[in-house]
Computed example of a mutant assay.
Amino acid sequence: MTDSTPRWTLPLLAAGQAQKEMTHNEALTLLDLVVQPCIESVGLNAPPADPQAGQAWIVGDTPQADWRDHAGHLAGWTEGGWRFLAPRPGLSAWSRADQCRCEWDGTAWRTGRVVGREFLIEGKKVIGAQRPAIAFPVGGQVTDNEARNALESVIEVLRGHGLIASG
């Protein structure tokens, strides 16, 4: 039997263990940090001078002081000091500073990126997978330059938004 959980390394109680409440409370403290996390900011390298219990940050790439050796970790301040959790793929947190979600993709934190297969509003698909390139209009017996310029502008906007591939 191991002494911690496999995903979040939460401490487990051992049979006959003295002071079980300490192990249990530590596990609850770590759960409080990782369940629906809300962080102050992403990428801070030095711990803040006056953190409040319950506040959390995502540690930057070159951590200093108490955060040394915890790059990319979720760092939470508790009454007992700093607690750290190494992220797992799919962990996301709300960033107060950025006003959006950030997600650990297995190698780095991605802020403000939304990944999906389709976008629905009131049950109706409004954005889906990128479509093949659309060629600009050419030729024809009658040329309407204003209409052609308008179509080219629409195609460029759709390409710029990534909705259709570049031709």
Rank of each mutant, 00 (worst) to 15 (best):
Q64A: 13
L44I: 15
A133E: 09
G43C: 02
E21Q: 14
R131T: 05
T29W: 00
S41T: 14
E21D: 11
N149G: 02
F119M: 14
L120V: 08
V42N: 00
R159Q: 15
K20V: 09
P11H: 05
N149Y: 05
F84Q: 07
Q141F: 12
G76F: 07
D144G: 04
R113L: 14
K125A: 13
S92Q: 15
G167A: 15
A53V: 15
E40P: 00
P89W: 04
R96K: 11
I134W: 13
P87A: 09
P137Y: 03
V59W: 06
G80R: 13
R96T: 10
P89Y: 07
C38D: 09
V138Y: 01
D98K: 11
G16F: 02
Q64T: 15
R7A: 05
I121R: 13
A150E: 06
S41D: 10
V42P: 00
A147K: 12
G112F: 00
N45S: 08
A75P: 00
S41Y: 03
G112I: 05
L91I: 02
G160I: 12
L120Y: 08
E156P: 01
Q64Y: 03
G106V: 05
R7C: 01
V138K: 11
Q36P: 09
D66G: 03
T78E: 04
A147G: 00
G140S: 04
Q141C: 12
R131C: 07
I121A: 10
N149W: 01
L31W: 05
R83W: 02
G128P: 05
V59K: 01
C102G: 07
L13S: 14
V154N: 02
H161M: 14
A133G: 10
Q64P: 02
G128F: 01
F136Q: 05
L163E: 12
D61T: 09
R101T: 07
A108D: 04
G128Y: 04
P87R: 04
G76I: 08
R113Y: 03
W8Q: 00
D50L: 14
A18P: 11
C100E: 08
P137K: 09
P6D: 10
W67A: 08
A27L: 03
V114W: 11
L28R: 10
R88T: 07
D3M: 11
W67L: 04
D105F: 03
Q17L: 07
P51H: 12
E118A: 10
P11K: 06
G72M: 02
P87H: 06
V114K: 10
E40Y: 01
I155C: 02
V35I: 15
A93S: 07
A49P: 11
P48F: 11
K125F: 03
L10V: 04
W82Y: 04
V142D: 06
W77P: 01
H24Y: 13
Q55C: 11
P63W: 02
Q17M: 14
R101S: 13
A53Q: 12
H73S: 06
V157D: 14
A53D: 14
I58W: 01
L163T: 03
W94R: 07
A65H: 12
L163M: 14
C100K: 06
T78F: 00
A75N: 03
K20Q: 15
R131S: 12
S153A: 13
A133F: 04
D3N: 10
R110C: 08
G16A: 05
G16S: 03
L30M: 15
H24M: 08
L85V: 13
C102L: 07
L12Y: 12
R96G: 01
V34W: 01
Q141P: 11
I134C: 06
E118L: 08
V34K: 01
H73F: 11
